[in-house]
Write a protein that binds this DNA or RNA. Structure first.
Lengths: 253, 253
DNA sequence: CGATGTGAATCGGTTCACAGCG
DNA sequence: CGCTGTGAACCGATTCACATCG
């Protein structure tokens, strides 16, 4: 596993479980929706339903952040939005670069969920000289040659890789060398990075394969000599996802 | 969690853990690469490195599928590719529809990783009448009115939703009513579906927020009175991901 | 001998159920 | 009285370490 230190410096009591961190954005989204409808407070039950989890899990998650609720009443929406935002680090500005402006890169550049969450697309970068200068989502595409200077000048610490698989590791190396310490990888490759660099991946193909697995199972069960109903025992609406939940990648043009 | 049945019919000994299923596509990808380089066999150690996991986990995973290795030698690449493909249900053809042909939908339509894995884009569907007939990735975009007939005629059981958040639930309902039982959701909404329908989601914004959380932590540690080295204790290259690994969604144009 | 396959130990996360408090 | 907050039980997944066998 290589966890760096074996024991972790125990940065105060900051022991928020990874699984909880992964759900905070979900709660935040639900809370934001409530906030827009001017709902003042929510119970764990209601919020849980809106976020697609169960209430016990939600309460436990919030308990790691502190006691932000009021017994007998619920949670103050605005206050919770603030607390979660702060915890996630969304109260500050995060400049990001997107490398690889193919179909996917362009889709990401146009994605509205960025700005609203404290993320700012500092630059779009592509290796194709023909792309250079072309405006995508209101930003001119810059050439890969400028990668290092863009990172440095804008203090970018988060990079998004949306290049073909073959170019991903190389791009990753350059991003890291230039100072990026968090990478969101859409290319279908395993990136190797030095310790201290965080990588998350999204791979559409993998998601589909997992669906196919379950789909096959359903089909099999239907025509099973034993099996009762056509489709029972599958994944519940809850929205749960396999543990460890590897996320995989989409490949651009 | 609402697992439908409480005990599961125990479809023979088919007890492959969800976490293992989620990694099979990863192994498959690595194996395919080896196969293309005509490598005949691999050890658990080598394959694990290529897939970004540790070897004990990989061996345990494979043990759920059966004993496909040879002690003292390793695994036969071709044989394993076949076994995993079969297990995942990739030896059959899976027609899929993509609903919502914005930036993201187009990117998905152009994604090459589909065909190579047994997935076939049966149709691209969009609600905008102006899009109808326009060719995207070689296929003419069809209007939402045709959704039901397309699903039925092509026997589609897997649907991909790449619409704006507001339209997602409605599209989902129609897909399900028409017979779709697996959905890959890219819209940033919690979809509610009847039991027996599988939903997985991909949300870019959530992934970025998780990165921001860790990024913030790194920054904090650096200037910590106590903390030793600048950056220790973060996520290792291993590629691990938070359990439960909620996957989030990208929003199209 | 070397690498697989797997019980047993361990770990992290989820769920339960209820004490605590506004 | 109702809902939060949480210890404890539970459960699945990961890791360890070694017996097994080609």
């Amino acid at each position: 596993m290589a966890t760096g230190r074996t024991h972790r410096p125990a940065t105060r009591s900051r022991g928020i479980p990874e699984a909880t961190v992964a759900r905070l954005p979900l709660y935040l989204r639900a809370l934001t929706a409530l906030s827009e409808r001017s709902v003042p407070t929510v119970s764990s039950e209601e919020l849980a339903a809106a976020a697609g989890v169960n209430s016990a899990k939600l309460r436990k998650d919030f308990s790691y952040l502190g006691s932000y609720g009021t017994r007998g009443v619920g949670y103050d929406v605005e206050y919770l939005v603030y607390q979660i935002s702060r915890e996630l680090g969304l109260t500050q500005d995060w400049p990001v670069v997107i490398v690889g402006i193919g179909n996917l890169g362009a889709a990401l550049a146009n994605y509205g969920g960025f700005a609203s969450r404290g993320f700012r697309v500092a630059a779009l970068i592509d290796a194709d000289p023909a792309m250079a200068g072309k405006p995508v989502a209101g930003l001119p595409v810059r050439h890969t040659d400028e990668l290092e200077s863009i990172i440095t000048e804008n203090g970018v610490s988060i990079g998004v890789i949306a290049t073909p698989a073959g170019a991903a590791q190389q791009v990753c190396d350059r991003l890291v060398a230039a100072g990026v310490t968090s990478i969101l990888n859409f290319a279908p490759t395993v990136l190797s990075v030095p310790e201290g660099v965080d990588v998350r991946k999204v791979d559409l193909s993998i998601e589909l394969q997992i669906l196919a697995f379950h789909e096959q199972r359903k089909a099999g069960e239907e025509s099973m000599p034993s099996a009762g109903q056509p489709r029972a025992e599958v994944r519940a609406p809850e929205g749960g996802k396999g543990p460890d939940g590897e996320i995989p990648a989409v490949m651009p043009a």
